[in-house]
Design a protein around this nucleic acid. Structure first.
Lengths: 254, 254
DNA sequence: TAGTGGTCTAGACCACGAC
DNA sequence: TCGTGGTCTAGACCACTAA
C-alpha cells in the first residue's frame, strides 16, 4: 500500500512538476526563459545535478530546451503542416504539373534539397516489394525538404533503375509533376498507394539533419505506389519532424 | 554536430557510441544485459555519473532500458499491431456485429477496460466539431485497450449526450458491432471518417497507463466520424504506444 | 546477502552567449 | 566580462533484484 504519496516523490520530480505547472498555468509561455539551474538550487535548496535532472525531465518530454550560455526556454512549437495523405496524391495535382510538396507547404516557402541520386542495391525488403532480381540496381533519390528554411522531412525514394534509366527521374530536377508524371509517361503511372506509419525517437544523425530538439520523436512514413496492374513502382521512406506535421487521412467507409 | 576530430567528443557520447555499435553488430541482442555502470567505470576510467550519462543517451533513443537492481538491457520490441486504418472501419466489420478492436488484434488476446463513461462538457474544439451548443453535455467514454495483457492504447470518445441517451452507448457493453452499430440504429450511422495523426513524447500519466519505457513516443490518432448528412457524430482521441503499432492506409489515387 | 541502478551532494573546469 | 548550461569527478545512502 503506497502511503505518503507526496513525501516519497524524488526531489527532481517535484521540481519538474512545479515547472510543468508553471508552464501549464501560463506563467511561462512558449519561448520564455525558465528559472536557471542556480535559481532552482537556491529556491529548492538542492545540488546542481538535482536541478539539472529536473530540467532533464522537461527536455525528455519536449517541453523545454536548453541553450548553452543563455538559459532554459519553453519550447516553441512549429507550424503544423497539414499533410492530407489521400487528397495530396490526386492525379489532378501531379498530372497538371503541380508539386505535391508545394501543396503541403501552402502559405510557406517550400524548398527541396537533393542530397544525392545514386544507383544501389536496395535493402532486401524494398527490393522484394519492387520485384527486383537479386542484385539488381535501384535508383535511389535522397532529398531533404524545408519549409521557411527549416528542415522538416527527409525522404529516400527507391525505383527500378532499369525502368527509369534515361528519364529525368535520374536527374535532380524531375520536371513538371515530378516522378509520378514521368512514371505515367512510361506507362507506369501510380493509381494506388499504401502508407505505413510508425514513430520512434531519432538517431543522432536524423536529429542533426532535421534540427530536432531533444524530446522530439520522428514519424516514419513508408509509401508504396502501385500501377493499375498492381505492380509496385516506387517505395518512398520518409522521416518527418513530428513537431512540424499533422497527418490527415479522410475517406469514406469502405 | 560532432564535427570534431574524435578527440573532443564528450566521453559519455563516445561510450554511448561504443555501446550502440556493440548492439548494432549483434554483440548484444534484444533482451540481453549490457555492461553495468561499474563495468563502464572501470573499462573507460570514468566516474559513475559519466557512465550513467552514456546509458541516458541509449535510453532516450529507446535502445536500452534500465531495471532497478538488475541491470541495463537492450530493448525488446513489441509485436507490431497492424492497424489498417481504412479497411478496419468497413461497414462489414461492425455491421455484422464484429468488433473493430478484435480485428486489429488478430492472433493475440484483445481486452478492453472501460475506465469510465461520463457526461461532461467537452473541450471547446471537440464540442465545436460535434455541433454542441455552449455548455451542452457530451457522453465521454474512456477506455484502455490491451493485447496479450499489455496495454497498447488509450481512447477517449466523445458523442452528443442527448443523441445517445438511453442507448447502450452509455453502458460499458455497447453490444454487437459497438458504438457504430448503435449509431446506425439511431439513423446516424457513420459513412465517412477523418483521422488526424500526430506524435510526441508522453506525459508521465500516459507513460504509466501504457507501461511505456523511456524513449518511447506516443502516436495520437484523432478520428472524427461523419454521417451521410455530413454531421460529425463521434470524435475519438486515441493515444497509442508507438512501439506496438504500425498504422496503414491503403487507397486509390483520388 | 551482494550487486544493481536511483537519487543526491559539493565541488571543478569549460565553451558559449549576452552585454 | 560574467553568467549560462555542458561535462566530469568522487564520494554517499537507498530500494530493489537475483542468487
Amino acid at each position: 500500500m503506497p502511503r505518503d504519496v507526496t513525501g516519497r516523490l524524488p526531489k527532481y520530480l517535484r521540481i519538474a512538476a512545479a515547472l510543468k505547472d508553471a508552464i501549464a498555468s501560463g506563467e511561462y509561455g512558449p519561448g520564455d526563459r525558465l528559472p536557471g539551474e542556480s535559481d532552482l538550487m537556491s529556491a529548492y535548496g538542492v545540488a546542481r545535478m538535482t536541478a539539472r535532472q529536473a530540467f532533464g525531465v522537461l527536455r525528455a518530454e519536449g517541453l523545454a530546451e536548453a541553450r548553452k550560455g543563455a538559459g532554459v526556454f519553453v519550447r516553441e512549437f512549429r507550424v503544423g503542416i497539414r499533410r492530407r495523405g489521400i487528397q495530396r496524391l490526386a492525379v489532378e495535382v501531379w498530372g497538371a504539373g503541380g508539386s505535391i510538396w508545394a501543396a503541403d507547404g501552402k502559405g510557406h516557402e517550400p524548398l527541396v534539397e537533393v542530397l544525392g541520386i545514386t544507383e544501389e542495391t536496395a535493402p532486401a525488403s524494398i527490393a522484394d516489394v519492387l520485384g527486383l532480381e537479386d542484385g539488381a540496381l535501384a535508383c535511389v533519390r535522397r532529398r531533404r525538404f524545408l519549409l521557411d528554411a527549416q528542415p522538416v522531412m527527409l525522404a529516400t525514394s527507391y525505383l527500378d533503375a532499369v525502368l527509369v534509366a534515361g528519364t529525368p527521374i535520374t536527374e535532380p530536377d524531375t520536371g513538371p509533376g515530378g516522378i509520378y508524371a514521368r512514371l505515367a509517361e512510361l506507362g507506369a503511372g501510380p493509381v494506388r498507394f499504401r502508407e505505413e506509419i510508425r514513430s520512434r525517437m531519432p538517431g543522432p544523425e536524423e536529429a542533426a539533419r532535421l534540427g530536432l530538439a531533444a524530446g522530439t520523436p520522428v514519424v516514419l512514413v513508408c509509401r508504396t505506389a502501385y500501377t493499375a496492374e498492381g505492380k509496385a513502382v516506387e517505395v518512398n521512406e520518409m522521416v518527418l519532424d513530428s513537431s512540424a506535421y499533422v497527418l490527415e487521412y479522410e475517406f469514406d467507409a469502405p
